[in-house]
Design a protein around this nucleic acid. Structure first.
Length: 467
RNA sequence: GGCCCGUUCGUCUAUCGGUUAGGACACCAGGUUUUCAACCUGGGAAGAGGGGUUCGACUCCCCUACGGGCUGCCA
């Protein structure tokens, strides 16, 4: 009964998937999925000069990593060019468009002359708008929309409110080029209409375009979709996001070790809010995501908060799922894969590891003890902890560990006993233990490490360090 | 230049005419501790400026400043 929501993400394949584009896709996906609607994907590849199949592949890969799945086949805008031309001619037939024989040189000359005269916004009015077809020359022509010359076009935008554009400031835009290919303004409307898109959620760099596109809907007698123009994302300095801010491509974030779940959470909160809700699952986001919660000002990227958000998600994730996601990171970052022993130890170490890592590189670093194999090579700080006194204490430890029951409580009792027996605090004993077990001075709890690698490996590492 | 949009702690934001302007990240201090984190407690921190409207403005209107977008036979 109620018309189902259909949203779409329509990137142009001229490069990687931009972080801002990723958020636009996320908003569209959240909105549709949260309402049982459909989320479609269309590649706007009509610019043959700049579009590449590699970029398309990168975009699909990025969306897949972020966990944004789309319904149906990916639509190629270029493949639909005949339909676009068909609509342009339909507009001609309806009298809402006309053939224009003005050349680009003539138009440029007009604009230059107007500017020279002090007209700051030269609107080119084609002399062919109301020309008699009998006067048409045998020459290339474009098809222009016959836009209303007076009055206003009002965009009812779910984010920006009512935006009014005076029609006199808009020219008769070209819908079909002289080579018969469609312009973006035409293609986007035809495709959105044909695909049944009900809600157009996109960057506010398209806000002005919406007025002209609305004219195309009107010219064809089609229903105008719900508009929602969201602000762009800026770099930490408030300037437009660019390469000098570092990571702008989504795949870079994956390679930096941010979990997709954390990225989704962070990106959802960037420019959208629902009261004090900060950390949430995707299901929770879907349940409450709406257009009215989107802010109107551009948001800045904050890596600290991204990290913090990711840290919460790493801690929230199920151990097995976390390990799998971690391995995905390893592959994406071009780091060596885990072998059986490493995987087994990491899985067992996960409960204590995941509480303390914000990113996967951090998780790997904290899990260093679980990934190495003997002989353990101590780093500089760890080597200092292994002085002769410490080594002799470690040596005295092994017999007791041989018969201990391998639980945290039992180990704690034994180690505390050793420490007090040697007249030192537990901290003093922990340092050489860390060095022996992990080769590091900074590690997880010594008990957790011992439990993870097991009795035999523990004793072996301690013995090797003691010699 | 013109048109359009925006402006609450350093950052992301809540507030939808009446609040000690709330939360989160970050920062600072203290606590806990087995190192690092994590965690707990506390702290400093905001309505761009100026006019209106109103009994009362962060909230509504206007101007200015600043930021962004658009201004293509690009998307």
């Amino acid at each position: 009964m109620s018309n189902p929501v259909v949203t779409r993400f329509a990137p142009s394949p001229t490069g990687y998937l931009h972080i801002g584009g990723a958020r636009t896709a996320l908003f569209n996906w959240l909105y549709a999925r949260g309402r049982g609607g459909r989320f479609l994907l269309r590649i706007e590849d009509t610019d043959r000069e700049r579009s590449t199949p590699e970029a398309t592949a990168a975009i699909l890969k990025g969306l897949t990593w972020l966990g944004l799945d789309w319904d149906g086949e990916v639509v190629s805008q270029f493949a639909r060019k005949d339909r676009h031309a068909e609509v342009a001619h339909a507009m001609l037939a309806r009298g809402t468009a006309y053939r224009c024989f003005s050349t680009q040189a003539e138009i440029e000359a007009f604009r230059a002359a107007e500017k020279a005269r002090g007209v700051s916004y030269p609107v080119f009015l084609s002399p062919w708008r109301d020309a008699d077809p009998a006067s048409y020359p045998d020459a290339p022509y474009v098809i222009r929309m016959k836009a209303p010359r007076s009055g206003e076009t009002v965009i009812h935008d779910q984010v920006q409110g009512e935006v009014t554009i005076r029609n006199e400031t808009l020219d008769d835009m070209i819908v079909l080029r002289s080579d018969g290919t469609p312009t973006y303004m035409l293609a986007v409307v035809v495709d959105d209409h044909d695909m049944g898109v009900t809600h157009v959620i996109r960057g506010d760099d398209h806000l002005n375009n919406a007025a002209r596109q609305q004219m195309v809907y009107d010219a064809m007698g089609w229903a105008v979709p719900v508009w929602a123009h969201i602000p762009l994302i800026h770099g930490p300095d408030g300037k437009k996001l660019s390469k000098r801010h570092g990571a702008t491509g989504l795949e870079e974030y994956q390679a930096m070790g941010y979990p997709a779940a954390g990225m989704r959470n962070y990106l959802t909160r960037l420019g959208w809010a629902h009261g004090d809700m900060e950390i949430f699952t995707t299901a929770e986001a879907m349940a409450v995501f709406d257009l009215s919660g989107i802010g109107r000002a551009p948001a800045r990227l904050d890596f600290k908060k991204l990290e913090n958000t990711c840290g919460h998600h790493i801690a929230m994730m199920d151990d097995a799922a976390l390990l799998q996601d971690l391995e995905g990171y390893l592959a994406a970052a071009g780091r060596p894969a885990l072998d059986e022993t490493q995987r087994d130890r990491m899985l067992r170490a996960m409960p204590s590891l995941k509480e303390r890592a914000k990113t996967y590189p951090e998780l790997i670093e904290k899990g260093h003890f679980a990934l190495i194999s003997r002989p353990v090579v101590p780093d500089e700080a760890a080597a200092r902890a292994l002085d002769s006194v410490s080594r002799s204490i470690l040596k005295s430890l092994t017999p007791q560990l041989q018969n201990a029951s391998w639980t945290k409580d039992a180990l704690e009792t034994i180690l505390n006993g050793i420490a007090s027996g040697n007249g030192i605090g537990f901290g003093k004993l922990a340092a050489p233990l860390r060095a022996a077990l992990a080769g590091r001075s900074v590690t997880p709890s010594v008990f957790d490490m011992m439990l993870v690698i097991g009795r035999d490996e523990t004793i072996a590492r301690l013995s090797e360090a003691a010699d």
